[in-house]
């Protein structure tokens, strides 16, 4: 079973003076449980692809299947419905709602499904605990650090049991230590069977994924699997950045990883 499957996917932006062809026919499948990093230079169409996968936009051509749903032919309301039921977003700038608490933020997708029961609330509390925020349940986003906010966003992306988690530069705003923490959270989630598709321009981040897809000028440049050894090595390099809880007081300066 594929979490998503795209065939000859095209996206054009028609402007007054020109037509920007952001995606010019991209095809690939993402099986359930995969962990994909999408890479490519700026302007190559990464965000466009992610927006299409996230049903925030409709393709100009080609096919996009999420599970059994063909997104290409859906109305605005149907897309919203899919987003609330089957897609989890994690953004670079966290994108939490300021006036809501941690638990309420996690609950938002369920809210738009009309699910507000005690069972759902319990699920949100559990998810907050799952990302390590059991002591911050009624904090507001402004009372949290960047890493904590991103954890809330990840918990929120899990709440509707999505086809896949879409992360656009999810670690772009975080320092390397927090990045390492978030990435190991992704690894755990993937190990639990979650499908993850993330956009990144950092090789060190991409190395943690099972598979790396490169785009160039709106076309698929390469699609390769990551060897388990290089994943392991990247994970170990990252692990070195996360201090043991016992050494916390010593505040040893964390070494900056050498960029490849």
């Amino acid at each position: 079973m594929h979490a998503c499957s795209i065939r000859d996917l095209k996206k054009e932006y028609v402007l007054k003076s020109e037509t920007v062809r952001a995606l010019r026919g991209v095809s690939f499948d993402v099986p359930e449980g995969d962990y994909v990093a999408i890479m490519g230079p700026s302007g190559s169409g990464k965000s466009t692809l992610l927006n299409l996968l996230g049903c925030l936009d409709q393709p100009s051509g080609g096919e996009l299947l999420l599970g059994k749903d063909n997104v290409a032919t859906m109305t605005d309301d149907q897309l919203a419905e899919i987003r609330s039921r089957r897609i989890g977003f994690v953004f670079q700038s966290y994108n939490l709602i300021q006036q809501l608490t941690v638990v309420e933020n996690i609950q938002v997708p369920l809210y738009y499904q009309g699910k507000l029961g005690a069972k759902e609330r319990k699920r949100c509390v559990d998810l907050a605990a799952r990302v390590g925020l059991q002591d911050r349940l009624s904090h507001r986003p402004t009372q949290l650090s960047g890493g904590q906010q991103q954890r809330v966003a990840i918990a929120r992306s899990l709440v509707n049991d999505p086809y896949f988690i879409l992360a656009d530069e999810a670690t772009g705003n975080l320092d390397s230590k927090t990045t390492a923490e978030i990435l190991s959270l992704f690894n755990e989630l993937n190990a639990e069977g979650r499908t993850i598709i993330m956009v990144t321009h950092e090789d060190e981040v991409a190395e943690r994924a099972k598979r790396i897809i490169r785009l160039r000028d709106g076309l698929l440049q390469s699609d390769r699997l990551n060897s388990p050894e290089s994943r392991q090595a990247a994970a170990e390099r990252a692990l070195a950045l996360i201090p043991d809880p016992q050494d916390d007081e010593e505040q040893t300066p964390t070494p900056i990883p050498v960029e490849a």
Partner: peptide
């Protein structure tokens, strides 16, 4: 934008 991305209809 956030709410729309998380499933809010118009």
């Amino acid at each position: 934008g956030i709410r729309r991305a998380l499933g809010a209809k118009q």
